[in-house]
Structure formats: C-alpha cells, structure tokens
Design a protein around this nucleic acid. Structure first.
Length: 465
RNA sequence: GGCGCAUUCGUCUAGGGGUCCAGGACGCCGCCCUCUCACGGCGGUAACACGGGUUCGAAUCCCGUAUGCGCUACCA
C-alpha cells in the first residue's frame, strides 16, 4: 500500500491540504503503507519554489512525515512528454492545433447563445504532423466510466459528457491530469486520497490509467473544509494556512488533532488523542461525506487542552518564538509555565501572561477596573502597611507560610482575607486576574513582592482619587 | 445550463430499521469548587432540511423537492 500527498506550490499550506496530508499519513500508518510527498509544480505560471519550501516546512512542523520524496514534477517533464507521445502513437490521443483564442471565442459565442460548449474534437482527424504550435488532447472514448470511491461508494460518469481534455500544453508542459496519472502509475500509488474538488476529474484519470494499461488505484475524495459562512474556507472567514495558526500560538499537536476530527471521528466520544492513537484507529472509509465547518473556537479550546497537559519542557521549544529578542531560559520559566499553562489558550497568550514577572517593579500599570473594584476604604493604606510588615517577617517565604500569615492578619484586622488578597494581586501584577497570588509572590521573591506592595501603597491616594 | 456530491443541536460529530421523545464535544447559560482567572465537577439550552413511499416499525432504505458545494481551463 502506498499513498501520497501532492500539493501544488501556489501558496502556503492550506488547512484543507493539511488535513488531506494527515488523512493520507494516518491511513498509510494504520496499514503499514508508504507515504510519498510530491510537489505538483507543472503550472509554471503559478508555482513558486519558496512556496514549495514553505509547504514542506509546514508539514514538518505539523508532524506529517513522509517516507519518500519530496519529488518535484518539474524534474520529470520529459517523462510526461514521453507518455503523451505514446498515447498519440497508439491513437488514444492526438495533436490539436486549435488556438486558445479560437476556442475562447467559440466558448463565448456558445455562452451568449445560451448553449453549453464542449470541444468538438475536430483535430482528431487532422492528418500528418505539422510544426505549428499544438497541444496533445486525449481522445475520450464513449461509454460509462465507473470507479470505486472509499468514501462515496460506486461512482458512474457518462463518457460522452467529458471533453477531449488537454494532456500536454503547447509549451510542452503536462496538465494536472497527465502528470498525476503518470506519477501515480510510476510511483505505484495504491490509494489516492484528495480533495472533493477532484471527484469530477476522476473519470478522466480512470480513462488515463486504462489507456496506459495500468491498475486503477482506490480513490477517497475528502469533503471540503468550509468557513463560518459555509463557503470554502477563505481569508475572509478566518486564517487559512497552517502557518497562520503557528503564528497564532497553536501547538502542532493540537492543530493535528483538531484537523483529524474534521470529517472523521474515532468513535467512543474520543476528542483528545495522540497521532499514534489516531494512526491505530484511522481508516479512509470512515471519513464523512459532508463538508465540515472549521470552528476556530474549538481549536482554541483544544490548544488549551494541549498546553495544560504538556510539561514546561515540551512547551518551551514552541514558546521561545513568542518570547521576544531576549528569551529567558527554561530553568527560569519552568515554574511560571506551570503556573500559567492552564490559563492560556495559545502560546501567544501564555507569553503575554508571563511578562508580569519580568517587567520592572516600578513599571507595573494598574488595571483601572480592578483599581475601582478593590482600592477603597480609608483604612486600606494602614491595612496594606501591616500586610507589608507581615510579609516582610514571613520566613520562609513560601506559599503556605505567606498565606497563613496573611489570613491571620486579616482575622486580626476583622476583615476577610479577600480584602487583602485582591489589593495584593493588584500590587504584584497590576491586574485583577492571575494565578493564585501566593504562588506569584513566591516566584517574584520576597524582596520584589515587597517593593511592588510598597509602590502600590505609595500610589494609593493617587489611585483612589 | 449540464454532470456530480452533500444535508443529525449555532459548530464538530455518534448513530448504519426497533435499545433514539437521538449520545458526546466546542460555544452559550446556571450552580459548585475558590483569593481572582483558569482547570475541574454538576445541570441546562439546542438537531434527524422538506414531501412522498417501503416496513408492524425509519435519523437509519428508496424516490422526488429545496438548499449548499464542486467540476464544466493549455489551474491544480
């Protein structure tokens, strides 16, 4: 068994393509098959080398591996010409001297007359060989074309309704239909899993496999991924490339898992699982027929689930990119990551939350809403001063000791602990939300915590006015 | 227009004739936990597109209709 993912390098790796790659990989792994990566860059107009490199990088990042390739179709142009000539020689294809201008004009005329247009096949009968520019067209035979689709079942198409499609362009480059079948034959592909948009092209490919005397592979046409507007996922409705999700702070394992669930389910209500688990359960035949809407909210939730289950060691390599020019070491961040990982949905959020530990004690900006809520009462200054003294004499300065000391103080002051805790949070972080405040204090250390508390006390009159 | 594909809660899905007045997850709402947030726990909201059949019985099978999408290029 051998599968392949065959992107064309006309842009970044689209999430739909990413999912196609994942499904190919999973099916190959499930059944011990081989996975091939092939770059379909026969369209010189639109293909770019840097896109190919970007796609390869995105696949690596995502964790989609391949056993062979990447093979570039642009390296195999001679092979496609050779195969096209074979078909001409055997009478299954022919040279066509019609120009695009002529054909476009015919098409436009037919359209304005309200009639559907199809190529007449008139060049089938042109005799001899001329040096005039020409394409090679496949002579589509009449009759029903049938094939099996793993996802849709038995498919039937009427041959008469298919144009004599172009195999080789006038510049000598192959079209998709030619290159894809020549390659799938040469590379012994047994299962073709690709986007739904190719379903209508498949009869052409079946015809070509037969014309070449090759076995027709199994097909699996995956439904598209839609945006919130139920249209093909586009930039209007959200990020479309794997790269954008990386930049957003999505970890690859989460995106992989999420994409896997679009159009497929392992059953038994399983949502979070590893690539290896998916590879044990996956089968192309279980993929849904209906297109799926990409829900960024659920991706964010899933990413949060991953972050919270990952260790600081696992998170750190992904996090570094979000830490700015002067990233701290894993050692410095280990505790902080543990404190914040269940509070962030993306690496970006995580990095953002961690900044409170590294800014100057004097640079903290107090959140206005939190100030309004917790900075009140004439005796606040004195109570916080007492808190300062209490914390100053707390030894050791650890979570349990500090918390016990604060609670004891609150009791002696006749107020709830919350009356001290919220101002303390504001003092240490400038915010109304944070991890448990004594954990934050311990990370900061006694000295910096006291300095931050002192600063708040000093600014109290300013803030409450 | 032609050909093809699809249609279960807002979204992702489970379901493959009776156990479904439809299960899980995200989101949303409420409660609990609690120093805040998050996590977690508990509960709630919400769906078989429509119409005909077949059958003792249909979300599940068949046929229409509607809607959406794809292809109809010297793009893939």
């Amino acid at each position: 068994m051998k599968l392949r993912f065959a992107p064309s390098p006309t842009g970044f790796l689209h999430v739909g393509g990413a999912r196609t790659a994942i499904f190919n990989l999973l099916h190959a792994r499930r059944y011990g098959g081989t996975m091939l990566l092939r770059i379909e860059d026969t369209d010189v107009e639109r293909s770019r080398q840097h896109h190919a490199e970007q796609i390869v990088a995105s696949l690596r990042w995502l964790g989609v591996e391949w056993d062979e390739g990447p093979i570039h179709q642009s390296d195999r142009l001679d092979r496609y010409r050779e195969r096209a000539e074979e078909l001409v020689a055997s009478g299954k294809a022919y040279r066509c001297y019609c120009t695009v201008e002529e054909l476009d004009a015919e098409r436009a005329a037919a359209e304005s007359a309200g009639k559907q247009w199809r190529y007449s096949g008139r060049c089938r009968h042109v005799a001899g060989v001329s040096n005039e520019p020409h394409v090679i067209r496949f002579a589509v035979p009449p009759g029903m074309i049938e094939f099996q689709d793993l996802i849709r079942g038995e498919m039937q198409f009427e041959g008469e309704l298919i144009d004599d499609f172009v195999l080789l362009r006038s510049d000598g480059n192959p079209t998709y239909h030619l290159s894809v079948t020549v390659d799938d034959i040469d590379m012994a592909i047994t299962h073709v899993a690709r986007g739904d948009d190719h379903l209508s092209n498949t009869p052409k490919h079946v015809l070509l496999f037969r014309a070449f005397g090759a076995d027709v592979p199994s097909f699996a046409h995956l439904p598209l991924i839609l945006g919130a507007d139920k249209k093909r996922l586009s930039k209007r409705t959200g990020a479309t490339s794997a790269e954008e999700y990386r930049e957003m702070g999505i970890v690859p394992e989460a995106l992989f898992n999420f994409l896997t669930l679009l159009g497929w389910s392992p059953g038994e209500n399983r949502e979070i699982f590893t690539r290896d688990e998916a590879a044990q359960w996956f089968d192309l035949g279980d993929v849904n027929k209906a297109p799926a809407v990409f829900d960024p909210e659920k991706l964010l939730w899933m990413n949060g689930q991953y972050l919270m289950r990952m260790t600081p060691e696992q998170i750190y390599p992904h996090l570094v990119a979000f830490l700015g020019d002067d990233p701290r070491s894993l050692e410095e961040l280990r505790t902080i990551i543990d404190l914040h990982k269940m509070r962030a949905r993306t690496l970006r959020e995580l990095a953002e939350q961690m900044t409170i530990y590294f800014i100057d004690d004097d640079a903290i900006e107090y959140d206005a809403d939190t100030v309004k809520k917790h900075i009140k009462g004439d005796d606040l200054a004195t109570r916080l001063s007492s808190l300062h003294d209490t914390l100053a004499s707390t030894d050791p300065f650890d979570v349990t000791t500090a918390e016990a000391a604060l609670r004891k103080l609150a009791e002696s002051q006749g107020v709830s602990a919350a009356k001290l805790i919220h101002p303390l949070r504001l003092a240490l972080t400038g915010k109304g939300v944070s991890p448990p405040i004594f954990d934050v204090a311990v990370v900061l250390g006694k000295e910096r915590s006291l300095r931050r508390l002192t600063r708040l006390i000093e600014q109290l009159s300013l803030l409450s006015s």
